[in-house]
Simulated assay, not measured.
Amino acid sequence: MSASGGTKAILAALAANLSIAVAKFVAAAFTGSSSMLAEGIHSVADSGNQALLLLGGRKAKRASTREHPFGYGRERYFYAFVVAVVLFAIGALFSLYEGYHKLTHAEPLSSPQWAFGVLIFAIIAEIFSFRTAIKEANAVRGDQSWMAFIRRSKSPELPVILLEDLGALLGLVFALFGVTMAVVTGNPVWDAVGTLMIGFLLAVISVVLAVETKSLLLGESAAPEMESRIRAALDATPQVDRVIHMKTLHIGPEELLVAAKIAVTRSDTAPEIAAGIDEAERRIREAVPIARVIYLEPDLDREAVGRV
C-alpha cells in the first residue's frame, strides 16, 4: 500500500470521520435525534475501520518467517474483512436497533438547527474525503468500471474506503431527510425512519465488503490479462516448447505466486533445462514485476512425443 495511494485515502477519511463524529455526537445530545446518534456511531465505526486498515498495511510489511514463508501480505485482506464485520456489527446493527427503538418510542426533536448545521458540515467534509478516494482510485483503475474495480481489485484499501465514503455520504443524506421531515411534519417517526435507512445501507455495504474480502482471503488468481502476459513470457522462452498448465495465486496485493509445468524436449540436457528455467523466470518477472515466487516444473512434451 503506497503512501501516495491507499494510505492517502485512508488518512483523509480518518481525519474527516474523527471531526465529523464529534460534531454528530454534540448535535445528537442537543437534539435527541436518533439519526444523528446513528450517524455518530457510523463515523466512530468508520474511524476504527480506517485505523484497522492502517494496522493491516503495517503488519503486511513484516518479513517472511519459517512459519510464514510467503510473508504476511494477506494481513491486509484479513483486516479488510474485519472492517466489514465491524461495520455490520457496530454500524448497521446499532442503527437498526436505534431506529426500531425510536419508532416504537418516538420522542420530539429539540434544537434541530444543531442537526442541520452538523449535517451540512459533515456532507462537505465527506465530499472532500470521497473526492480524495476517487482521485486515488482513478490512478489505478484504468478503464474498468467502478463495479469491476471494486470486485477485481487485489488491494482492498481503496475499494473499502470508496464504499465507506459512499455509505457515509448517503447516510448523511438519509439523516438529513429524516430530521427535515420530522421538523416539517412535526412527527418524530421520520427521524426513526432515517435511522433505519442508515442501518439498512450499512448492512448492504458490509455484506458487499465481506463477500469481496472473503474471496481475497481464500486466494484469488491473477487477472486474466496478467496471466496472458505470464504465458506469453513462457512461450517466448526458447527452451520452453509450450506451457502444459499454469496456476497463479495472490499471496498479497503486490505479491504473486506462479506455478507452471512447462514442456521441454527429450534432447535437452540438465544444464540446458536449468538455464531455460532461469530465463523463463527472468522473462516472467520482466512482464509481471509482482511475480515474486515462481515455481516451474519441466516435463517432456508428451503430445510431441506421441506425434513422432
Rank of each mutant, 00 (worst) to 15 (best):
R58T: 15
K61A: 12
A60S: 13
E75A: 13
F78R: 09
E67K: 15
L96F: 00
S34Q: 11
A51I: 15
S95Y: 09
V85T: 10
R66W: 14
A89W: 05
M36C: 08
R62A: 14
H42T: 06
N49M: 07
L55P: 11
G40C: 04
V82L: 09
L55E: 10
T65F: 08
R66A: 15
D46Y: 02
G71S: 03
L52M: 10
G71R: 08
R62V: 08
K59V: 11
N49D: 06
G56Y: 01
A80Y: 03
A51H: 08
S64I: 01
A60V: 03
V82D: 00
A80C: 00
S47W: 00
S35Q: 05
S47G: 12
A63T: 14
V44L: 12
T31M: 05
F81V: 12
S95T: 05
Y77Q: 01
A89V: 01
L96I: 08
F81N: 09
T31E: 11
H68A: 08
V85I: 12
K59C: 13
Q50W: 03
R58Q: 14
S64Q: 13
G71K: 09
R74Q: 09
S34E: 11
H68W: 11
A80I: 09
H42N: 10
H68P: 00
Y72T: 00
Q50G: 10
R58I: 11
G32T: 12
I41S: 04
A92E: 04
L55R: 04
D46V: 04
E67G: 13
G99T: 01
G57D: 10
R62I: 10
E39P: 03
V86I: 13
L96V: 03
S43D: 02
L53H: 07
A84F: 09
A60G: 06
S43E: 07
S35V: 03
R76N: 13
E39G: 04
I41A: 10
Q50H: 00
S47Q: 07
Y79M: 14
S35T: 12
G91V: 04
Y79Q: 10
K61H: 12
K61G: 12
F30V: 13
V44G: 10
A29Q: 15
G91Y: 02
Q50A: 11
G73H: 04
G57K: 06
T65L: 11
T65K: 08
F70K: 01
L87Q: 13
N49T: 06
G32M: 05
G48K: 06
E98D: 14
A28V: 01
F81W: 09
H68I: 02
I41T: 10
L93T: 05
F78S: 12
A92L: 00
V83C: 01
A51W: 09
A89P: 00
G91W: 04
R74E: 01
A63L: 13
M36E: 13
G56D: 00
A80K: 02
A51M: 15
A38P: 02
L52E: 05
A60E: 05
E67F: 15
M36I: 07
F81D: 04
G73Y: 02
R58D: 15
F88G: 08
H68N: 12
A80Q: 01
S34L: 13
G71Q: 04
N49I: 07
E39K: 01
R74W: 05
Y77D: 05
M36N: 10
M36L: 15
R66F: 14
